[in-house]
Design a binder for these strands. Structure first.
Ligand SMILES: [Zn+2]
Ligand SMILES: [Zn+2]
Ligand SMILES: [Zn+2]
Ligand SMILES: [Zn+2]
Lengths: 168, 168
DNA sequence: TTATTAATGTTATATTATAACGTATATTAA
DNA sequence: TTAATATACGTTATAATATAACATTAATAA
């Protein structure tokens, strides 16, 4: 089971998250002979500013501010599409939002844990779950191609206040 | 494991699906002291015309034709919201579409099997999967509240042509 | 019946995403 | 180096999905 949950939902040195993500991205681009342009790099970096998914129009605003010039939606969506195709980011359909992928190299299905309180989202690659889903499909002769798995709930951080209350 | 997969992805007497769904809906409304108005009933019935999820604006068109008068988006969305709250339908976030729930009474999480070829979608309530997800969350101190699970692939119907080819 | 609540009608607008076409920039071939 | 090509970006318009706000009507309760 591969996950960034422990990191995401705890205080941590987030600079390392950013650096690691950007390094991986550049490596992957070289490997795939893809171009990491300023726009694409900026969008990826913006998505890694936190572990909270961002919508396309939030990205638009932040990108415009960062590059200090007006940015139109297609610019953002093109960068998003590029990053999605390389597997550097994911789309969270239930939120219409995007988030950086912490392990873009490894084959993995997307299981997200999304905190309804703070908005942070972590990702899991969970072999058992994937196998179970696969065989659940197979049992009814359904050939699995891809999947979108989103779990909503309270992250460790946001559960704590409640525990504190019960101590009083 | 509770599912309507066998039914959905095979030829079947769909009239029975519709009748069962409408009966369940009316029963549930009585039980919950909720009003099944013409608009709401029509939307539910439209969603049950097939096992393919429909978007809000497809519903708008079909509802306008059915009721023979212009229908504005809020009318559709209000009916959708009502049916969602009663658990009579579900939203499929990755499709921006809605589908009737085959077992609105039973507590269940929403696992959908969506055929990328014919668009049909079936639903599963799968205890093992839910338990596994629950405990996967618990392992990283994540308290599960709700979930959105969508599997994409080929249904039995749409896999068959390929099998036929290999017989030639 | 009147008061109250619930549902719908209506208009406008917010939010998310893409189409179409032109321009600039980078890569490759000559 | 230059010309040809492919790739990325700029720009404008618009499609597709969803909601806000307020007026009107219908159903229920007092
Ligand atoms: Zn971090
Ligand atoms: Zn990922
Ligand atoms: Zn049916
Ligand atoms: Zn259901």
């Amino acid at each position: 089971m591969l996950t960034n949950s422990r990191l995401v939902h705890q205080p941590h040195d987030h600079g390392r998250c950013i650096n690691a993500a950007m390094t991986r991205a550049h490596d992957l681009c070289i490997e795939q002979n893809a171009r990491m342009t300023t726009t694409r790099e900026s969008v990826l970096r913006l998505l890694w500013q936190s572990h909270r998914p961002l919508g396309a129009y939030q990205l638009q605003d932040q990108l415009a501010e960062l590059l200090n010039k007006p940015i139109a939606p297609p610019t953002v969506y093109r960068a998003i599409e590029f990053l999605l195709q390389l597997g550097l980011i994911h789309r969270l359909p239930s939120l219409n939002a995007y988030i950086g992928c912490p392990f873009p190299n490894s084959e993995h299905s997307n299981l997200f844990l999304i905190c309804t309180e703070c908005g942070s989202a972590s990702e899991m690659a969970h072999a058992t779950i994937n196998n179970t889903l696969q065989s659940a499909g197979a049992k009814v002769n359904f050939t699995l191609q891809s999947q979108s798995l989103e779990l909503f709930g309270l992250c460790p951080q946001c559960s704590e206040p409640l525990e504190a209350d019960s101590n009083e």
